[in-house]
């Protein structure tokens, strides 16, 4: 009897030592509950890996640069050229994979610049809610948001020299206000929570309040929006390159490939259809993954230790 009682008492101690349930495991459970999120993640991984290792996996790496092969121009999709060839005889499949590089590079860099700027301004405006600083930041944000996004990007890109860097600058300029808006809303509501009041009454400094109390409570919508935005930045980038304001030939870009193809419709339909599908699948992948990240970040019943 005595022994069994003792072993019972040890149970809580044991369960404490294995208490640290892997955060990765928990997050994966929440992410993968929706199977479509997993599909999205697989699409994204395939796109990212194929972009990174493009020279190793595509059948004709040199077709992504200065190359012409009029003998094979306009070949329909076949075993040799999966997605056919364009009017210069270049393999569409190889060029799409290479075009992912520019598209992902642009999305990563645009978000890496626009998100910190937007989040910082949103936090400041939210913290100084009702002051002059709040008014200035939020009215400027409103002005940017009131111009149709593509129009603003087009205008900026048109003024600057057409190349990938300037296209990224154009998209970055129109992208940060969305994050300012998002974070402002979160920050103003968090600012009035009792835990923020309690920290203030203890005597915590402004930096602590803004970055340690308010910011962590804004992170999950920020990450969700970022995941969704990768797709949209790629779309805007493709739109810019469609009208000739992005990456310049002969470097392949998805929008530019679609635009080139339209001149040969409907005879060389594959020139337009496959790059368009590539854009659509990329956006779909990032959106599905974004939904999964939102599920993962949501605080809920599975968060108890």
């Amino acid at each position: 009897m005595n022994i069994s009682v003792q072993s019972k008492q040890e149970v809580p101690a044991l369960s404490f030592s294995v208490r640290v349930k892997s955060g990765v495991k928990k997050n994966w459970y929440k992410f993968s509950r929706n199977k479509l999120s997993v599909v999205g993640l697989i699409i994204v991984l395939i796109i990212v890996f194929s972009a990174i290792f493009a020279p190793l996996i595509v059948p004709y790496p040199h077709h992504a640069g200065k190359f012409v092969d009029y003998a094979n121009a306009g070949t329909a999709p076949c075993a040799e050229y999966w997605f056919g060839t364009d009017n210069f005889g270049r393999d569409i499949f190889s060029r799409i994979i290479f075009a992912f590089r520019g598209a992902l590079y642009m999305a990563a860099l645009v978000l890496a610049i626009a998100v910190p700027i937007g989040v910082f301004l949103g936090l400041i405006a939210g913290y100084y809610q009702g002051t002059f600083l709040d008014t200035v930041i939020m009215r400027v944000t409103d002005i940017f948001l009131s111009v149709p996004p593509l129009l603003l990007a087009l205008a900026i890109a048109a003024v600057l020299k057409p190349n990938l860097t300037n296209a990224m600058i154009a998209v970055t300029v129109m992208w940060w206000p969305w994050y300012t808006r998002l974070v402002y809303g979160m920050a103003t509501s968090t600012r009035n929570e009792y835990f923020v009041k309690a920290s203030e009454l203890i005597g915590a400094g402004r930096l602590h309040i803004i970055f340690r109390e308010i910011l962590p409570n804004c992170l999950s919508p920020i990450f969700t929006k970022m995941a969704l935005d990768v797709g949209w930045v790629i779309l805007i980038g493709a739109s810019l390159s469609f009208v000739g304001l992005g990456e310049q030939p002969p470097t392949p870009a998805l929008g530019q490939m679609v635009s080139d193809g339209t001149r040969y419709m409907p005879d060389l339909w594959w020139m337009t259809v496959f790059p368009s599908l590539a854009i659509a699948v990329t956006i779909l992948g990032f959106n599905l993954m974004g939904d999964g990240i939102r599920d993962m970040m949501a605080k809920g019943e599975y968060d108890r230790e």
């Binding site: 835990f195 309690a198 009454l201 203890i202 915590a204």
Partner: peptide, 28 residues
């Protein structure tokens, strides 16, 4: 000092107890 009514909203759910109790000790 003050203790608020609702313990749900007076503690930051993004911090653990250590971080919560560290603040007054560090500030003062």
């Amino acid at each position: 000092q003050i203790v608020f009514q609702d313990p749900g909203s007076s503690l930051n759910s993004r911090q653990n107890v250590r971080q919560i109790l560290e603040l007054p000790l560090r500030v003062h």
